[in-house]
Design a protein around this nucleic acid. Sequence first.
DNA 1: CGATGATTTGAGTATTATCAATGGTAGTGG
DNA 2: CCACTACCATTGATAATACTCAAATCATCG
Lengths: 245, 245
Amino acid sequence: MDQGSLAERLGRYLPLGEAERRALAALEEGERTVARGAVLRAEQAVAREFYVVRKGWLYSSVMLPEGNRQILGFHLPGDLAGDAALPWSHAPFSLTAATEVTVRVVDRTSLRGLFERHPRLALSLHALAQVERTALAERLASVGRSSAMSRVAALLVDLWRRLARAKLIPPEGVILPLTQEEIGDAVGLTAVHVNRMMRRLVETGLIARDGMRLRVLNEAGLARIGNVGGREGTPDFGWLPATAG
Amino acid sequence: MDQGSLAERLGRYLPLGEAERRALAALEEGERTVARGAVLRAEQAVAREFYVVRKGWLYSSVMLPEGNRQILGFHLPGDLAGDAALPWSHAPFSLTAATEVTVRVVDRTSLRGLFERHPRLALSLHALAQVERTALAERLASVGRSSAMSRVAALLVDLWRRLARAKLIPPEGVILPLTQEEIGDAVGLTAVHVNRMMRRLVETGLIARDGMRLRVLNEAGLARIGNVGGREGTPDFGWLPATAG
DNA sequence: CGATGATTTGAGTATTATCAATGGTAGTGG
DNA sequence: CCACTACCATTGATAATACTCAAATCATCG
């Protein structure tokens, strides 16, 4: 199946019929590739479309008036990006390429047809949005109520697990295409402090680093430090209507 | 129209047809009232339903292992609550009554019928979920990247504006049914520090308090301190299909 | 090789948390 | 009506966490 497609992503949660796969594939119109560091869509830009990440990483962020940046989330292959802009004419946050990234473009008006002809897919998309929302809530809890160590650990576990699910982790570890400043902007810390925390995680033997390459040596331990729950949260799409065509 | 109903809420964003109003009303099945402080649905409880707030306030929260609590958001009349649990069999966070609160119960499986028969409403619900998601993102930015003063100010402006939109603010000010500890749990501060910040906001003349009653004297100033944007973010549901019956 | 940007480390500071004590207010039961 | 309790707000004093500033090291790329 198409690597990083919407069909592949939704297929993780529920079985899809042939017609449904085709409908999803038809959504993804143009393809666009942007270089590392480039902004795919800026905050406040006109936003009539959203994206499906095919290859590479993206992150969404907002800038505060004093020049601080908050990174809201990272979008890996198979993730949607920019769909939170649906109910606005202008993007509430910007999308930036953490690596060179390839996305498929989905015009928001094409959701009308999808919702009319494929209610089951519509419901799945809705449920998927709620998954993202829960992830955001968990990040908020981490940033609002945990120590610096915790926050960094939580972010690393989250990324590690998502990458693992998407089968993107080779045995020698994964390349985290993030500066420590970006990590800091994601968890609400300065780059300097992120450095100290990562360093301590290495000393403790929980992770290993080599340049940008990261290996989690003790996922359970890292999860504990990060206050990250275990497997309670397996998505349950079983209540959706049974597979159509 | 039914105060705090889903129809009233969605009607704020787009015109609804008669059939659509009926379909929305049909969703809301039982009614339930719980006392201030009571838990409507606990974290990890089986979650096959979600709620529409009719009267009173609710908040959703998660507990961290060390006993810290993060309040994720407040649900005012007309808001959905617990809908983020859709893709899970067990609730990712708990719902607590901040005041005595009355909710209508919606079984998640009844969404199937709605999505099949009313794609336009389905799309609206989806868009509404994205609105909530954006609010969460803004809170994250506030907690992650602003000072204590900012965070408290941002929360107050947010609540104030939402209450104003729902026409729930009498001229003498609104009763915030929140302890300073709850405010702290929402913005990632201790109750003690929340107290100091609120006190300073009063000294500065931005707000006035009398017991639990709050009045915002200078909304623009409070918004500036809170790093809260102005009117950029007016929802745009204009791209949805035109009104059906 | 020089230039640019990221990481690393140290020293001092600031913001926010923690601890502790006091006063206020509402509710309860006698 | 009053004691009594419980919870919340307030304030001060102290401690800890994370930030700021600064400089040195490293890595990468033309």
